[in-house]
């Protein structure tokens, strides 16, 4: 027997298992925010160099630490 909140938890986990993508669908204005854990440095520039920021999303959410996984000399801070 699941309690109702456990049931939701189960549904959510099943969903994530199926789709396999991290992060929430809360803010999807920019792909480097929507799938921030999987995005790379250059997805910041993919819409053109002037489109770095999506206010307020990019002011609220941090860039993913996983950016650091890639060999890039671009300083992000």
């Amino acid at each position: 027997m699941y309690s109702s909140s456990n049931l939701h938890e189960q549904t959510k986990n099943d969903f994530v298992k199926t789709v396999g993508l991290p992060d929430l669908a809360i803010s999807n204005g920019a792909n480097f925010i929507r799938h921030r854990s999987l995005s790379d440095t250059f997805s910041l520039f993919s819409n053109g160099p002037e489109l770095l920021e999506y206010f307020p999303s990019t002011f609220t959410y941090n860039y993913s630490q996983n950016y650091k996984n890639i060999p890039s000399r671009i300083e992000l801070e």
């Binding site: 991290p22 854990s37 307020p56 990019t58 609220t60 996983n66 996984n69």
Partner: peptide, 15 residues
């Protein structure tokens, strides 16, 4: 890595 990314989701230091 994903876990670390989740922990640092919010940009408290700026913005």
């Amino acid at each position: 890595d994903l876990k670390v990314s989740y922990q640092n989701i919010f940009d408290y230091k700026s913005g």
